[in-house]
């Protein structure tokens, strides 16, 4: 194991430019998917948290989406968008949607109704209540959702290399093609580290916005 790791390290340094580019692509894919998903799901989640009928159907759809293996969703983009970057980030965005939506919906739904009533009773407008009271209280759970989505997307972005996007997954495909464990590791280790780092950062962020209990 040790010497394979060493070889992997050497390989990475030998192909430093390519590696950094792959890393950049990976981060771009992840960032883009998360960004779009957040922009769609947070407002949507606020809307669903306030209704009952619409919410049930929407939440059910997204719950079912979560159950479907990510590889299936990734590959299903191919017949439509081919083996390309576009396929990758559409699929990744779709994968990021469920946790963020469901968490946003739950977050807003579970705010103590007494607090919402008092906010109105004191003379806040709907907008003021949303921004000054509801949003700060919902934030920790929303961030938890984004955190789940982040780890998920980092993993799936690796798989996306199979469908023709760039990212660190290129080392996985290459490693398989050339039967070389070391090259596989050049993909696997950074991805693992990236996932762990993201989890740590987002946990800390979540704790930071949590009001003291």
């Amino acid at each position: 194991m040790g010497e394979t790791l060493l070889r992997a390290y050497e390989y990475a340094t030998d192909h430093q430019e390519e590696f950094l580019r792959a890393l950049g692509e990976h981060l771009l894919l992840v960032g883009l998917a998360l960004g779009i998903a957040t922009l769609i799901c947070v407002p949507l989640g606020i809307v669903t948290s306030r209704s009952r009928a619409v919410a049930a159907t929407v939440i059910n759809i997204f719950n079912s989406l979560r159950v479907v293996p990510s590889l299936a969703i990734l590959f299903l983009a191919i017949p439509y968008f081919g083996l390309s970057l576009t396929s990758a980030w559409i699929a990744l965005t779709i994968l990021a949607l469920p946790p963020i939506l469901i968490n946003t919906d739950t977050a807003f739904r579970t705010i103590n109704p007494a607090i919402k009533e008092v906010a109105y009773g004191m003379g806040m407008t709907g907008q003021q209540r949303l921004w000054r009271v509801e949003a700060p209280l919902a934030l920790p759970v929303i961030i938890a959702g984004i955190r789940t989505a982040t780890v998920e997307v980092i993993a799936s972005a690796t798989l996306a290399a199979f469908i023709g996007s760039g990212g660190l997954g290129i080392y996985v495909t290459r490693g398989f093609a050339l039967y070389d464990n070391a090259i596989l590791l050049v993909g696997a280790v950074p991805v693992a580290l990236l996932a762990l780092l993201a989890e740590m950062v987002m946990s800390r962020l979540q704790r930071a916005v949590q009001p003291p209990a």
């Binding site: 103590n112 007494a114 607090i115 008092v118 009773g121 004191m122 003379g123 009271v133 209280l137």
Partner: peptide, 15 residues
């Protein structure tokens, strides 16, 4: 409402 004070049983302080 901004001219009326409102106190409820559950207090409803913003946490």
């Amino acid at each position: 409402r901004r001219q009326i004070g409102y106190v409820i049983q559950q207090v409803g302080l913003f946490p």
